[in-house]
Design a protein around this nucleic acid. Structure first.
Lengths: 309, 309
DNA sequence: CGATCTCCATGCGCGGTCCGTATCGTTCTC
DNA sequence: GAGAACGATACGGACCGCGCATGGAGATCG
């Protein structure tokens, strides 16, 4: 049996108005059109839905059953229609994002909080992964897009990439660190201590290239590689707090530690004004971004502009 | 936004087949028709639902959201379509019945059990009421139809009435009743004991007219009226069991009391072979019976034929 | 490297469907 | 008994939606 939502909608409206003329007006059609559509519904259901008398139009007992179900289905259709509008406008639907540690902490997670506050009905899946895992998730269509250091993204021709903007990180250390006792210090001083970063060392190229430490060379890429690689920034924090190791972060990532004097930022004269890193968003070339992705990306861009100074 | 179930159905089918040609064949339409309908859906949703490549047709991320909702709505529409078929065929929907004590016990309740067993999805409201209350329920559209002694029903011109068939009741008394010690007894003997029946005495006309007791006259109607009127048959049973009062019933109403020797049937030579009573079904003239009512009525008729002998 | 194949999109013509206007038929009212 | 109210029906026109035929872009193969 073919169900036509329009006919059900007509029946529901008629049952509310109990009058063909007024129901037709409410529906924005002529009275004969409503008459014919109700007759069509009754024909295709094989039963009479309304009793017509000259003073009243009222549902038959079987019509009551029909109207209850019609009401339910029409209401559900309208709810779905509304939810689809939210999806189209980037205010609803499912959004699956993967990001590296820095991008996750600095861009995705704060932006996601704004997005959820603005659109509570959105369904988010936020994954923090290292680059190789993130790439695999994208290529197998398990996430909609990725936020990473833009250099890693641009190395993959299968991806479409857009820049999200730059930001400057800072070296930081524990608050009792020996370096802090010096009146002045520079990159050469920093190099004497262990350097810890999250993620696989070979994928931190873009992050490190912009640092002042970039002036110090390693054999292949022209910058120093972390001497300690761990998988989460939580571990970076603990190692920095418990050793003389130094790391790099956006101040928001360690702001609680700054407030409690657990960490200190190592500000030193910069040799060049290059950014620490440039984040980018990327997705599989032949796929389409969901509209909600544009909402999140716009929030991230705004945030990156705010902290990029 | 107007939702068209057909377009959603097309999209769901396409997402399963991932191929326009095969999906179109499965839907029984031509491939261009499916192409155009999917394009129409995408246009009216304002977003792309499918990625078309030459080897594959796959949903966009937003399309996933669309398809999930479409799937849900289509499935619900199909379920409702099925339930509407049940209503039309008298195998589902809501059915509200009122009956008097005898009709309820003898006809409606057993028939309802058969109906439920045959159609578990049916929704029944079974009311046992005296005649005046039943009439009020019918006239206020709170029940779909009534099952009563046909004479009461026919007295109301506002009702359409159909006969359900006749049945014979029997006098019964407690098992130690004095009458049972007599070798023979007749109606005149019965008249010497209290007579108890459920319902308002003036409404038992039809029930009593057919009894042999009808040969004994009262001033107005030519038969004896109950000397004790109670509202439920349960009370009748208790009074008969605890006193010398006599009543009338179908054997099925007291069969447990017969088995435990609590009651005894008073069989006596009958003077005429008239039925004890004729049940009928009635509903408000301008209303329509729900299809399920026909199912219940058919079962009652079958049952009345079976016990009418 | 071009011919062919695959597969979705599009142009075209037609048949049916759906709508609104006008009108009818019935019932209720005064 | 005339008129009003109201749902059903007749009719003509516009538009929609279908299938057939064809186009066009990318993959495949000789």
């Amino acid at each position: 049996m073919e169900i036509d939502l329009k006919l059900l909608q007509y029946a529901v409206t008629l049952s509310r108005h109990r009058h063909f003329g007024r129901a037709a007006a409410a529906l924005g059609v002529s009275q004969p059109t409503l008459s014919r559509n109700i007759a069509a519904l009754e024909k295709q259901l094989g039963m009479r839905v309304f009793e017509r008398s000259h003073r009243d139009v009222v549902a038959t007992p079987a019509g009551d059953d029909v109207l209850n179900m019609a009401d339910e289905l029409v209401a559900r259709a309208e709810a779905i229609s509304h939810r689809l509008e939210l999806v189209r406008d980037g205010r609803g639907g499912r959004l699956r994002v993967v990001a590296g540690t820095y991008a996750f902490d600095i861009a995705v997670q704060p932006a996601a909080i704004d997005l959820i506050n603005a659109n509570p009905s959105i369904r988010l899946e936020l994954l923090e992964r290292e680059w190789a895992a993130a790439l695999a998730l994208m290529m197998t269509d398990q996430v909609d897009f990725a936020v990473f250091d833009v250099e890693a993204l641009r190395s993959m021709p299968a991806l479409r990439v857009e820049s999200l903007g730059e930001f400057r990180g800072r070296y930081f250390c524990r608050s009792g660190h020996p370096l802090l006792r010096k009146a002045t210090f520079d990159v050469e001083d920093v190099r004497r201590y262990p350097f810890v970063m999250p993620g696989m060392p070979r994928h931190q190229a873009g992050m490190l290239e912009g640092l002042d430490a970039g002036a110090t060379q390693d054999a292949s890429r022209g910058f120093i590689l972390p001497s300690i690689a761990v998988s989460s920034f939580r571990t970076v924090r603990e190692i920095v707090a418990g050793t003389d190791a130094i790391s790099v972060a956006h101040p928001s990532q360690i702001s609680d530690g700054l407030a409690t004097k657990r960490f200190a930022v190592l500000d030193m004269p910069t040799r060049r004004r290059a950014p620490v890193a440039e984040f980018g968003v990327a997705w599989k070339r032949e796929r389409t971004l969901p509209p909600a992705a544009r909402s999140l990306i716009a929030i991230i861009r705004r945030r990156m502009r705010a902290i990029g100074r």
